[in-house]
Design a protein around this nucleic acid. Sequence first.
DNA 1: CAGGTAATTATGCAAGCGTATAATTTATGG
DNA 2: CCATAAATTATACGCTTGCATAATTACCTG
Lengths: 227, 227
Amino acid sequence: MQAYNLWPPTMEKHVTGGRRKFRREGADLRRSALVRATLDLIAEEGVRGATVRAIAERAEVTQGLIRHYFSTKEDLVLAAYLEHMAGLTEQTFATVERGGNARTRLVALVVASVTPPVVDAASVGLWAGFLNHVRQDERMREVHARTYHEFRDRLETLIVAALEEAGRVIGTGQARRLAIACNAVIDGLWLEGGALPEAFEAGELPGIALKSVGAILGLNLERGEQI
Amino acid sequence: MQAYNLWPPTMEKHVTGGRRKFRREGADLRRSALVRATLDLIAEEGVRGATVRAIAERAEVTQGLIRHYFSTKEDLVLAAYLEHMAGLTEQTFATVERGGNARTRLVALVVASVTPPVVDAASVGLWAGFLNHVRQDERMREVHARTYHEFRDRLETLIVAALEEAGRVIGTGQARRLAIACNAVIDGLWLEGGALPEAFEAGELPGIALKSVGAILGLNLERGEQI
DNA sequence: CAGGTAATTATGCAAGCGTATAATTTATGG
DNA sequence: CCATAAATTATACGCTTGCATAATTACCTG
């Protein structure tokens, strides 16, 4: 993720004799630039490195502007968390939604979840950094819960569809439990793959993920058609 | 975890007219008290709350003493991380090692991993707080890797034994993959159970964990004898 | 093209941080 | 019982932090 230089080459910021000293931008643009800077910094340097000053510098504004858009730093961090989790979910489901039968879509989801760019050290670091805030901030906790349930519910829907496709109908209770279980495998592999990449051989995780989820569901998700 | 009052009731610290102003303690005792204070603080208030001053106060010493035992704060945090992860592993395996056949021990391990006190919000918060440091500190990364592999290796040994007990012999490659998969389920459930306790019904996780691990291994781990 | 308004910068403050170092106090051993 | 070393406290420094507030600046509207 690169920070954008909002200035024409001949009109640098703060240049004596330059015409403008800064440029007004729309609120949305500035807010998203600040959020992006926050995410990049937490990913690169950890929560500790994401100070108000560093964020402002990264976003190429002065620190006072942060207060103009976010009444507190915690608000900015919350916005960044929201953005990150939404992006992660979207990224994971991106290749899934379009077409194919349920089994194919499920396979795509599982594979995407444990493959770069979803599996990524910075992404896991980011997530861990936020998780620490979650315990202390009510709003963060709410985002955490919502994100988790959203992903799990979509997974559950896909599982039910894939099983029906195979001629099996299950109750809501079992669907719930299967989704929790599959979600746990995916989460676990995603986490470990991101936090400890050197512990796994290249391309090892998708195979393990498919075999495990398949075993839990009683479906053969690897190569070939059903069963 | 309570902080201990090292002083006799009649001889409080800093009391004017009291005899001693402090008491010398063995290095091990002080080091462990500081580590414990650090863990408690990170668990309760997050990484941000675990300042040198707060840690010293919690351990009932002055802040200068920290520097006497740990040359830097990062060293103290490292020691705390080591302690926490070792404790977590030990706690998880505690009920497992003693007796029983391999299948029984495996069941015990899986259940213990997703049940309090191993599943615990503070413990997960602690773990997440440390994970953030892991990305930036080489020594932390080393502890992280070692802890992960140690747990997974012990799990793998247990899996191989349980399968052999059922008359199945597997190769090292498959043993490795099964261990990775089962470890991921356990990790995922542990994480979610700790971070989002209200998302699960009471006692729901052990059942899900046993069914999932059983499905992955092709073993019936729930009630009754094998198969 | 003037004037108002909102965006942005500039400046500063008070508190908290980790660390360093010197001064005390306790315990130990001859 | 005194000397010595180690544990512990006391104090302070320099830096960074988040936040506040006032001074500028750019842009929009008439």
